[in-house]
């Protein structure tokens, strides 16, 4: 009897506690939702108030500009292949910027990562320094470095490449060091026991383990960097973005040229996206 009674009271307590907890949770998530909705609504209103064009007015005109481009491209359809052909050299420049900055950036990123992983670092005391370095490199938006370098080095691909490479070094530095943390340390210890130096331990003990992952991230980064170098071109760093800006600022009359550039840029991004997707898939799941 007594047992049953306690049991019933225990259940009741439990039930009570559970319901209270559920209620508290509901209250919290309700409050969070209200806060979030309030932020979204007020944010939208502020953005609306500080924007030159009105949202509802703009949304009806959203396709005006694409329509202008398509109209002009169709009207001068004969010129389109020529424009696409003309867009190829700046496109190659854009891809070159992306490729060089990925190569150099991942190289430095790899070094940063090795120097900032516990257990692998050559100078364990400086791990913090290298981590902060890659944090800062990651935090500075490319445009900042690019614009400053354009002022010093003149407009062209080099400032963009340096800016993207620095950002890439920071981003891959962090990603690679996460990969390194999962590396098996036994080969490193084995190499150390036969008297291998730090460079040898890294080259022979760590790199073979992490290389596929590094490569996969580097490809992903290449994809991102193509987009970044197109955008930087728009603010004056050469390549296809710059041509696009020129065609656009000219406006009516050169929109067919803009259309050609749009097509080339879209095709490039999709092709590299797919290509790197396929390669990365292979790296992860084998050749199948």
């Amino acid at each position: 009897m007594t047992f049953l009674a306690t049991g019933a009271r225990g259940t009741a307590d439990l039930r009570h506690a559970y319901l209270a907890q559920v209620q508290r949770r509901r209250l919290y998530s309700g409050l969070l939702t209200i806060l979030f909705v309030a932020l979204m609504v007020s944010g939208f209103q502020i953005a609306q108030a500080r924007n030159a064009g009105d949202f509802l007015n703009g949304i009806t005109h959203i396709f005006d500009f694409p329509a202008d481009i398509v109209d002009e491209a169709i009207a001068k359809a004969g010129n389109l292949p020529g424009h696409i052909w003309d867009a190829l050299p700046p496109l190659i420049e854009t891809i070159n910027i992306a490729a060089v900055s990925t190569l150099i950036g991942t190289l430095f990123g790899g070094l940063l990562a090795l120097a900032s992983t516990r257990g692998l670092a050559a100078w364990p005391r400086l791990i913090v320094v290298f981590r902060r370095t890659s944090d800062v490199l990651r935090a500075v938006p490319e445009i900042v470095i690019a614009l400053v370098l354009i002022f010093v080095l003149g407009a062209g691909p080099v400032p963009a490449a340096i800016a993207i490479a620095l950002h890439t070094a920071g981003a891959t530095g962090k990603l690679f060091s996460e990969v390194n943390e999962n590396a098996d340390l036994k080969p490193v210890e084995g190499l150390a026991s036969v008297g291998a130096g730090w460079v040898q331990r890294m080259m022979l003990g760590v790199i073979p383990q992490v290389a596929p992952n590094y490569f996969s991230y580097a490809l992903l980064r290449f994809e991102i960097n193509i987009r970044a170098s197109a955008i930087l071109g728009f603010v004056g760093a050469g390549g296809i973005g710059y041509e696009l800006k020129n065609a656009m600022t000219f406006g009516q009359g050169k929109l067919d040229e803009a259309a050609g550039i749009f097509i080339v840029l879209f095709a490039t991004i999709v092709i590299f996206d797919q290509l790197s997707g396929v390669i990365r898939h292979r790296l992860t799941y084998g050749d199948a």
């Binding site: 064009g53 959203i62 500009f65 987009r227």
Partner: peptide
């Protein structure tokens, strides 16, 4: 795929024509 392929840059240009300069765009 299409939306991801059309780069952010292109959207930015198209939208800034429709909405004018500002944070909403």
């Amino acid at each position: 795929d299409f939306v991801r392929g059309v780069d952010g840059l292109i959207f930015t240009i198209i939208l800034s024509r429709a909405f004018g300069p500002g944070p909403m765009t």
